[in-house]
């Protein structure tokens, strides 16, 4: 157990040292959203209508940015091979790493979503389904993306392949996440898509660390 705590602490310490690394996703998110703001005519009501989609896609693309580094830097400095031979459960190590990824590049996006939504002229009544949805959806991306990053860790062209493999797997997350906001915007019940997101999150938390560990072992055989 202590080994896992140490791993978690190491992830956070490394992130604190490489500040540009984890500042990138929130910055990217802000840039995408402001570009949409510049791209349309001033105070366009259409912008508010598209806000759920813009915020969701922006957040997911931003979180995708840092995924490739998840195992690559560990592979380069040999930490990954140490993890593979150490007695610590690789599955738990993968879980911890994905969790750290979410804390560093998913959670800031969730917190940023509310002020950015205000910039897009998003009705404040809809903030709850948006933020709850993002809070449930961004960890899904960290775990699904962690699995795909493990699949592509040893590959020279892994960086290009990663988003192609991740995007179809997170389609349901976007559909239900944006769907929840849209439904409550129309005065309808938003809880069903949010429950779906919770189900997807539970499934990814449970199953994907196992498969990601298998993918890592496969890559190093």
């Amino acid at each position: 157990m202590s080994a896992l705590v140490a791993l978690f602490a190491r992830e956070l310490k490394l992130a604190a040292r490489a500040r540009t690394e984890w500042l990138m996703p929130p910055l990217f998110f802000v840039i995408v959203v402001t570009l949409f703001g510049f791209g349309v005519r001033p105070n366009d009501p259409q912008l508010a209508a598209f806000a759920p989609a813009i915020l969701w896609v922006g957040a997911l693309l931003a979180a995708l940015l840092s995924l490739e580094r998840l195992y690559r830097s560990d592979q380069e400095d040999g930490t990954l091979e140490q993890l593979l031979v150490s007695p610590t459960s690789l599955t738990f190590a993968v879980f911890i790493k994905s969790l750290a990824h979410w804390l560093l590049s998913g959670l800031p996006l969730v917190l940023l979503a509310a002020p950015l939504a205000a910039m897009l002229g998003f009705p404040s009544a809809l903030l709850t389904p948006l933020v709850v949805g993002l809070a449930l959806g961004t960890p899904c991306l960290s775990f699904i993306g962690g699995f795909v990053a493990a699949l592509t860790v040893g590959l020279p062209r892994g960086g290009a392949l990663l988003p192609v493999l991740v995007l179809p797997l997170i389609v349901p997350v976007v559909i239900f996440g944006a769907g929840a906001v849209r439904a409550s915007g129309q005065g309808l019940d938003a809880s069903a898509p949010l429950y779906f997101l919770a189900a997807i999150l539970m499934f990814t938390l449970t199953v994907l660390p196992w498969l990601a560990a298998a993918a890592l072992r496969n890559a190093f055989e």
């Binding site: 429950y195 779906f196 919770a198 189900a199 539970m202 499934f203 938390l205 449970t206 199953v207």
Partner: peptide
């Protein structure tokens, strides 16, 4: 526990 929670949330949805 994880799969049970998945099922609970899924069925609620």
């Amino acid at each position: 526990v994880g799969l049970a929670l998945t099922a609970v949330f899924g069925f609620t949805a």
